[in-house]
């Protein structure tokens, strides 16, 4: 049998036609324009910016090198306390303003020359956990977390989708958000899922009751949908995170690329 261990074989593997065309997988750092170094993740521990779509327990991805412009959301140290605020500037006067609808009259005095204020970083996006497990993963993230790993973009069953419309606003999923989806998970009741219905993809909350499946929107004016057999309903995946882009430049970037096409 020794004759058969020589390296020549019957049929060599086909050169894969895709090999030459392989593109690197989606990379959040590339989307945000972050260099390999010099960015950090920050866990939001308040509702101070909830009107801007940043909820308690979200992870903020921020750039320490970007120069903060007016209307940017920034991480600032004010009198030795780290806070997330919107920077508003007019002439030589600057304000650092919270956006919490529960406290509409929070202090809005201008920054004075004697104030000890340090702007640490400009917030580029916030990551919102859509399931209990992903919220836990966010709150336990290591200080120098790799954003792509945190979102699971290296996993074979994880895909990204783009949200159009605000039907899931109540769940923290806004128009223009990127939703990270795990296709391998089976949905549990109340999970936010991506499903195909009538040949279209939707993001909705998955509810089972009395032997039927309902798709619920998290928007007061959108009624629930009862799933019937002729809709061709199929679960596409379970939503893990939504990425809310805060910086106008990055949002524009997405749009510009789309117009250019290939």
């Amino acid at each position: 049998m020794n004759a058969f261990t020589s390296p020549t074989i019957v049929a060599a593997g086909f050169p894969s036609p895709g090999e030459e065309w392989r593109e690197p997988r989606l990379d959040v750092r590339q989307l945000l324009g972050l260099a390999s170094e010099g960015s950090f993740c920050y866990l939001m521990r308040s509702a101070d910016m909830s009107a801007a779509g940043i909820l308690n327990g979200d992870v903020l991805v921020a750039s320490p090198t970007l120069v903060a412009g007016s209307t940017d959301i920034v991480i600032a140290t004010i009198d030795e306390a780290t806070q997330v605020r919107r920077l508003l500037r007019i002439g030589s006067v600057a304000f650092l303003v919270p956006e919490d609808p529960a406290r509409p009259h929070a202090q809005r005095r201008p920054l004075l020359s004697g104030d000890s204020v340090l702007i640490e970083a400009v917030v580029l996006c916030n990551i919102h956990g859509l399931s209990e497990a992903s919220r836990l993963a966010l709150s336990n993230h290591p200080p120098h977390a790799n954003v792509n790993r945190l979102l699971g973009l290296h996993l074979p069953a994880v895909f990204c989708t783009l949200v159009k419309g605000s039907s899931m606003q109540g769940a923290g999923v806004f128009d223009g958000d990127i939703v990270v989806v795990d296709r391998s998970q089976r949905p549990a009741p109340n999970d936010v899922i991506i499903a195909s219905v009538n040949g279209r993809f939707v993001v909705k909350r998955f509810i089972q009751a009395r032997g039927s499946v309902f798709l619920l929107s998290d928007h007061p004016l959108t009624p629930p949908v009862l799933v019937t057999t002729e809709m061709g309903f199929q679960v596409w995946g379970v939503a893990l995170f939504s990425l809310h882009l805060l910086h106008q430049r990055i949002k524009n970037r997405l749009r510009e690329q789309r117009r250019q096409g290939r």
């Binding site: 783009l162 949200v163 279209r200 993809f201 250019q260 290939r262």
Partner: peptide, 17 residues
């Protein structure tokens, strides 16, 4: 009739409503 590069380009993501 090229479809989008759904998994490798941010500009090509699958849209959900």
């Amino acid at each position: 009739w090229l479809s989008a590069h759904y998994t490798t380009r941010w500009s090509d993501l699958l849209q959900v409503t």
